[in-house]
Amino acid sequence: MANRIQQLGILRIDVINCIMNGEIIEDYPTDYPHPSCLIFGHDTLNNRGVMLWLDMMAIMCLL
């Protein structure tokens, strides 16, 4: 996941900002293999963005 974020030019601080200050707009607790949710948030420059939070463990490793 971290490699894909780097390929897209997304900064780690922007992912953190979106997760910490964004709003969960969809929750998928039964997703396989891990629960996920869709987060609407902004990057550090206040640009809008949508991020898919796939896996709590993957996000914890990213942060």
Rank of each mutant, 00 (worst) to 15 (best):
I25Q: 04
P29L: 05
T30F: 08
Q6I: 04
L62V: 01
I13N: 15
D43A: 04
P29W: 06
I10N: 04
N21Y: 10
N46L: 07
E23W: 09
Q6P: 02
I5V: 14
N17Q: 03
Y28D: 15
D27P: 05
Y32K: 15
I24V: 15
S36V: 12
V50L: 07
G49Q: 12
I13R: 12
T30H: 11
G9L: 14
P29K: 06
V15T: 02
G22L: 07
E26V: 12
G22V: 02
Y32H: 05
V15M: 11
H34L: 02
P35G: 08
M56G: 11
A2M: 06
I59W: 03
Q6V: 03
D27A: 12
I25G: 05
M56N: 12
D55T: 09
F40Y: 14
I10E: 04
D31Q: 07
D27Q: 10
W53T: 00
F40P: 04
I24Q: 05
G9H: 12
G22F: 04
P33V: 05
L8E: 09
C61I: 02
G41V: 02
L52P: 01
L54P: 03
L52I: 09
N17E: 01
R4A: 09
D55R: 11
E23D: 11
L62D: 02
V15F: 02
M56R: 13
A58M: 01
L38K: 15
I5Q: 12
L45P: 02
P35W: 07
M20D: 11
L62Y: 13
Q6L: 10
Q6H: 13
E23T: 07
D31I: 04
D14R: 05
D14S: 06
C18Q: 03
H42R: 13
I5Y: 14
Q7L: 10
N46V: 03
P33N: 11
I24M: 09
V50W: 07
I13Y: 14
H42F: 14
L45Y: 13
S36P: 12
G22I: 03
D55W: 03
W53I: 00
C18E: 01
I19A: 01
R12L: 07
N47R: 15
T44R: 14
I25T: 12
I19L: 02
N17W: 01
I59V: 11
G9W: 13
L38A: 11
I24T: 11
I5M: 14
I19G: 00
L52T: 07
W53C: 04
M51R: 08
L45K: 15
L62F: 14
Q6G: 04
R48A: 05
